[in-house]
Design a protein around this nucleic acid. Sequence first.
DNA 1: CATGAATGAGGCTTCATTCAT
DNA 2: GATGAATGAAGCCTCATTCAT
Lengths: 197, 197, 197, 197
Amino acid sequence: MREPVTERGMATRQRLVEAAEQVFGTEGFHAATIVEITRVAGVGLGTFYEYFDSKESLFKALVRHMSHELRRAIATEVAGLSDRLAQERVGFETFFRFALRHKNLYRIVLECQFVDEELYRWYYQRLADGYRRGLRAAIAQGQVRSCEVETVVYALLGIAQMLGMRWVLCENRVPPPEALEELSVIIARILAPEPKA
Amino acid sequence: MREPVTERGMATRQRLVEAAEQVFGTEGFHAATIVEITRVAGVGLGTFYEYFDSKESLFKALVRHMSHELRRAIATEVAGLSDRLAQERVGFETFFRFALRHKNLYRIVLECQFVDEELYRWYYQRLADGYRRGLRAAIAQGQVRSCEVETVVYALLGIAQMLGMRWVLCENRVPPPEALEELSVIIARILAPEPKA
Amino acid sequence: MREPVTERGMATRQRLVEAAEQVFGTEGFHAATIVEITRVAGVGLGTFYEYFDSKESLFKALVRHMSHELRRAIATEVAGLSDRLAQERVGFETFFRFALRHKNLYRIVLECQFVDEELYRWYYQRLADGYRRGLRAAIAQGQVRSCEVETVVYALLGIAQMLGMRWVLCENRVPPPEALEELSVIIARILAPEPKA
Amino acid sequence: MREPVTERGMATRQRLVEAAEQVFGTEGFHAATIVEITRVAGVGLGTFYEYFDSKESLFKALVRHMSHELRRAIATEVAGLSDRLAQERVGFETFFRFALRHKNLYRIVLECQFVDEELYRWYYQRLADGYRRGLRAAIAQGQVRSCEVETVVYALLGIAQMLGMRWVLCENRVPPPEALEELSVIIARILAPEPKA
DNA sequence: CATGAATGAGGCTTCATTCAT
DNA sequence: GATGAATGAAGCCTCATTCAT
C-alpha cells in the first residue's frame, strides 16, 4: 500500500474511493468485486492495491468516513439553534438529506453490520454517545423531559434509520413534507417536557 | 429437489432447516457454507440438494418462515386486549421475546436486505401493512390520535428494530424493565389521542 | 480438506501425490503450480483442495514422507550387517539408489530448505540423530575410532549429499563403481579404528 | 539498464547490491521483492531497473561475485603454504570464515540451485575444477595419496558445505575448535599418502 | 434416501516491470 | 540520474452445485 505523494496519485486514489462507494453501494459488499471497482475508476487492477490494503479495509474506511461526515453535517446544521426540539428536527432532516446525497455510503453503513460487527457497533455507539450527551444536557436545561435516556436515544435513532430506509433507500427521496410534519410531532411528543401537564 | 414423503425424510429436512438457521444466524449468509450446514445437520453434503434448490432459496424460506411466525406470535398475544396502547406494549414485548428466542432467524431477516432486496421489502411491507391496518382501526375508534399513519407506522417499526438490535443482538437479552417502562411512555406519547389537551 | 473414505477417493489422492512429486521435483516449489499438478493428475483444480490444505502443506507432507521412507530403506538394507564399515557402505549405496528412484522427492527435500527452514532442520536433525546414535554404538564396540561424533556425522552426511547431487541429480545415475570404490576407502579412512597405528 | 559513469551512480548501484544481498539472503529469492530491496537501499523503485536488467540477473550476479571472492579469499590464504594438508585445513577455515562474514551471499549460493540450475553447476564445477587441479598436483608431488580424484573432490566439497550449513547457517558461528580439530583429522585421513602403511 | 467425490468459475492479491516526468 | 505511479498476468484458494453410486 502506498501513501500517494504526487497530485496524480491523490487523484487516482480519489477516483478509486468514488468508484468503490458506487459499486459497494449498488452491489453490496459481497457482490462487489475489485475488478469492477477498478473498471469504474478507469484504472488497472493492480492500482487498487497501490492505495488500499484490501477490499475490506476500503469498505471500513468508507464507513468511518461516512460516520465522520454525517456527524459533522449535523453538528454544522444544528450549531446555531438553541431550541432542542428544533435541533432534533433539523438533525433528522439533515440526516435524510445526507443519506440521500450519499445514498451509497448510507447503504454501506447499513450493510457493515454483516461485514464487520465490530465496526457497526463502533458506528452506532459513536452516534449514540453524541446523542446521549446532547440529550442529557437538554434534560438538565429543562428543554427535554426527564427520561430513561438510553431508550429514548435508541428509539430516536431507530426512527431515523427506518424512515431513512423507507424514503431514501426505497423511494430515493427525502421524506415528503407531511412525513416530516408528523415526524416533528413525534419527536416533540417523545421529548417535550410537559407530557400532558 | 424432493418433497419428503417418509417420516425419515421429514426429519432430515427439519434437521437441515435448523442447522441452516444456526449457521446463517451466526456466520451470516455469505460466510455460511452448505458444507457447514450439512455438517451441523449431520447429513451428507449431497443431501442438502435433495431438499432445497439452493443456498439462497433456503435462506429466503427462513425469512418467510420468520415473518409468518412473528406475526402469528404477536397476533396471539395481542388477541384478547382491547386497549390499543396495551396492545402496542404487548406487541413490542412479544417481538423482543421472539427475537431473543429466534435470535438467529432475526439476524437472518436483518441481513436479507443485502441478499435479496425484494424479499426485504416484502417482509417490511407485510409488517407495515398489518400495522397500518391496525392503527387505522384504532384511530377510527378514537384509541389513537389522528395522524399521518405511514410515518407513525415506520417510526414504531424503527423503534422496535433498533431496540431489538440494542438489547437482543448486542446484549443477548430482552430490554430491561426500565427500558420497557420508558418504551411504554414513548408509545403512549406517540399514539395517545389527547396530545396535550 | 477431506479424508477420503471411498476407494476412488484414495486413488485420486494418490494420483495427486504422484503428480505433485513429479511437478515439484522438476519445476521446483515456486515454479510449480496447483493447476499444473492437477493437470498432470488428470483431475479438476478443486479436487486438489479436497485432499490437501495448500500447496505448501502437500510439499511438507512429501518431505516428511521421504524422510520416513529413506530411513526405512536404509534400516532395512543395513539390518543384517554386523560390520560397521559394511553398514556404512551399504547405507550410502542404498541412499544413492533411493535418491535415484525418487529423484523428484530428493530434489524436493533439498529445496525444502528454502521453503520452510524449520522442516529442513527437522529433516537433517532426524537423519543426524539416527546416525549419531549408530556411530556412538559402533565406537563403544570398537568398530569405529573414538572421534568427535558431531563433526564426523555431518561430514558423512555432507559427502552423501554432495555425491548424490553430483551423480544422481547431475548425471541421473548412481555413482559409478570406481566412485563407490573410492567412497568405501574414504569411509574406511574416516572411521577405521586404527588411525595409522 | 545503465552503466553508471558518475560517482553518484556508482554509489547508488553499490547500495542496491548490498541491499539485495541482505534481502535475498534473509528472505530467499522468491520471497524477496524489488520494492523491499529498493526500500532497504533507500532509493526509488524505478532506480533498480536503471542498474539491473531484472531480479534474476542481479541474483545471478551476486552468485558470480561470491564465487569470485571465495576463490580469491582461499587462494590468498593458502598462497604461502607448501604442505598440502595445511592448505586444506586453511582452505576449509577460510571458507567457514568467509561464509560467516558473507552469510547472506552464502545462502544465496545455496539457493541458486533452485533458481537457475545452470548457474549452480557452473559454480560447483568451477570450485571442483580448481580443487581437482590442486589435488592432482599434490598427488603428483606425493603429498596426497593416489585416489579417484573426482570422488575425493566432491566428498571434500560436501564436507565443507554440510559443516558450513551446520555451524554457520544454523549456529551463526564458525565451527568450534573441537570440530575443526576433528575436521583436520578427517582431511588427513582422506588424503594422507601412507594410509596405513 | 443418502452421499461424498469432483468440478471450475470466479474472487482476491502479489509483484516484476514499464514509463512519463 | 532518479522516481513513483500504473499495470495485468499469474497464482492461490473457495464453494455452490452436479452426479454417479
